[in-house]
Amino acid sequence: MAPEAAARPTRAELRLAAREQSRSQRRDAAKAATRTALLRVALPSVAALGVAAAAAVTVQGEADQQRAQAAGRVPEQTTAADAPDSAHTAAAQAAEQALAAGAADQASRGDARQPLAGTQGAPDAAGQPAAQAATTDPAPAPARPTLSMPVAQHGIGEAFGAAGTHWAKRHTGIDFPVDGGTQVMAVADGTIRTQWNASYGYMTILKTADGTEVWYCHLRSYKIRKGAVKAGDVIAFVGSSGNSTGPHLHLEIRPAGGGAPVDPLPWFLAQGLDPR
């Protein structure tokens, strides 16, 4: 009697078998990927642990050797390079490379600082570096005089108190015999005003801070008619107006408060000026 033929699997069974095979293949692939990743992480870690262990062994070996030398059991080694330990040799080489890199870095910084030493430039005529000479403060401008002569030319003609037919009593100021058109200057800081007088002619009156008045008489013309002036400012020009026999500057000093005129010569001398 012939044996029964083996039953053929159905389509459902075939699909189920295919899914099981695909799942098995995916599990095998995932396991292989996991092992590969673990090996990639573990191998560097093992290498690092090996280096650390070698360094620790080197340090422990050097400590044991020092203790043995102290006990007189092991001859002293002259240098670290004589030790046969390969890990120690590698550590020494790494240290030498680090020192060389540090020396190169210091040399680079030194080269960068070197141009700063030459920024001062060559010395100038006074022996100072050019950069320093350039920063020297300029000389201050000369200060304005606190007092000034009324005219540039020294010399006095008629003195204070002189008698004569040109004055009702006596001469009330001093005369500067200078040419017509000569510049007349303010003798001190103050304010000026101008006026006409039949005897004094065109005149300028300078009032100083303490109230003293300086009268300039027999003028030809004014340069400044009123306002504030400084010592040495040109305020008018010499003439021969009023009761005058020729070009000259008649100058009077009147104390504050409207008192009688005083001798201008002692006043000038007291101020450090000598018009003679």
Rank of each mutant, 00 (worst) to 15 (best):
M1N: 10
A2L: 11
P3S: 14
A5K: 12
A6W: 03
R8V: 13
R8W: 05
A12H: 08
L14A: 10
R15F: 01
L16H: 06
L16I: 00
R19C: 07
R19K: 06
R19W: 07
S22F: 03
R23L: 15
R23W: 07
S24K: 11
R26G: 06
D28L: 15
A29K: 02
A32V: 10
A33I: 01
R35F: 11
T36I: 06
T36P: 00
A37W: 05
R40G: 13
A42S: 15
S45A: 15
S45C: 15
S45R: 13
A48C: 08
V51E: 00
A52T: 06
A52P: 00
A55W: 10
A56F: 09
T58E: 00
V59Y: 10
V59D: 06
V59E: 04
G61M: 12
Q65T: 14
R67L: 15
R67M: 13
R67E: 14
A68M: 10
Q69S: 12
E76Y: 11
A83I: 02
D85I: 07
A90C: 11
A95T: 12
E96S: 15
E96C: 06
L99E: 05
A101T: 13
A103R: 13
Q106D: 10
A107W: 01
D111M: 11
D111A: 15
Q114P: 01
G121L: 13
A122V: 12
D124F: 02
D124P: 04
G127P: 11
Q128S: 12
T136D: 08
P138V: 01
A141Y: 02
A143T: 14
S148C: 14
S148F: 15
P150M: 10
V151P: 00
H154A: 14
G155K: 07
G157N: 09
E158I: 07
E158D: 11
A159D: 03
G161P: 04
G161N: 04
A162K: 04
A162R: 09
A163K: 08
G164F: 01
G164Q: 04
H166S: 10
H166K: 06
K169H: 04
R170K: 09
R170T: 06
D175A: 05
V178L: 08
V178H: 07
G180L: 00
T182C: 06
Q183M: 03
V184W: 00
M185D: 01
M185L: 09
D189P: 01
G190A: 11
N197M: 08
S199T: 08
G201M: 02
M203S: 11
I205G: 07
T208Q: 09
G211D: 08
G211M: 03
Y216K: 08
C217F: 02
L219G: 01
R220C: 06
R220G: 15
Y222W: 14
K223A: 05
G227S: 13
V229R: 03
A231K: 05
D233A: 13
I235T: 03
F237K: 08
V238Q: 02
S240R: 04
N243Q: 11
S244M: 00
P247G: 07
L249E: 00
H250G: 03
L251I: 06
L251Q: 03
P255H: 05
G257R: 14
P266R: 10
P266M: 09
R276D: 12
